[in-house]
Design a binder for these strands. Structure first.
Lengths: 142, 142
DNA sequence: CAACTCGTAACAGAATAAGTTGCGGTTAGC
DNA sequence: GCTAACCGCAACTTATTCTGTTACGAGTTG
């Protein structure tokens, strides 16, 4: 799996928004300063999070980003679904041989197993909320 | 996660070896014919599976590959560990800002959660063996 | 010794991710 | 209305990874 760090950065963003939840919107440039990257990278991820109705944006001076859902109501599974659309385990790059009994059927057999594995992963991610992480982060930063 | 199809192909290989378990070694070229790829790709994966003591190879005419462990004793977790060494969810590409309370601690907070998520995934993969898949494949191919 | 098979390095091409620049659109406040 | 501060988004570059391919040496069988 050549996963990406999208999930990590998205969680970072949401935790930061929960941390700075003073009512004031937070700019993508400020978030980028905490993450250590370019504001456009942050805005790309925020756009995905907005599509899942987790955050909202506002333009103009004093604008920026805010949580729509309270941190206690956002699980890591929500974030995972918002930013990782691809399959957990991709099937073959090239089609297996349809004249081989194994090649002809292995993908169908694997699809079900992979689906269960993804569910198991998501069930675990569901156990943690952004509020949990914020609490852990403030404990560690003390 | 930019995962790869390594797990899928490795499972395919092992299922095929279990299917052709007539005592005769199976060549990487034959396996490649079932998977639909190049023999070198197959040998690369087989080398990883051998490192985990799941298969053995033999050179020369009549040579090829065989299972070392019976199909009932190989779980998808074993295969996963053999071929997917990287982290399930990578951390930040660039280091977060150490002067930010969130940036300074988020990676430590996430490491534990990611570890649990990986365990949950592996526990699920452990439920299925190559023998299970072979049975499913022969049922589908009927 | 001849055919066969693995072992592995080296390279090419494609896909993906991360980072960057640029610019248009919108908003707040003077 | 003008200006400054933001977002929105397309386009491009660069780095990395994955897949596929060629090539060739080493070992084995008969």
């Amino acid at each position: 799996m050549s996963p990406s760090s999208r999930l990590t950065v998205a969680i970072h963003i949401l935790t930061l928004l929960a941390h700075e939840a003073s009512g004031e919107p937070v700019t993508s440039e400020y978030i980028a300063g905490s993450v250590g990257t370019n504001p456009v990278v942050i805005r790309r991820l925020l756009a995905m999070l907005r599509k899942s109705k987790l955050v909202r944006s506002q333009g103009g001076p004093g604008g920026g980003w805010q949580l729509v859902v309270p941190a206690r109501g956002i699980t890591l599974r929500d974030v995972y679904r918002a930013v990782e659309s691809e399959a957990l385990f991709p099937l073959h790059a090239s089609t297996p041989n349809p004249r081989c009994p194994v090649g002809r059927t292995i993908q169908a057999a694997l699809a079900g197993r992979y689906g269960e594995a993804r569910l198991a992963l998501e069930r675990d991610l569901e156990r943690t909320t952004i509020a949990d992480l914020l609490q852990e982060v403030t404990r560690l930063a003390r």
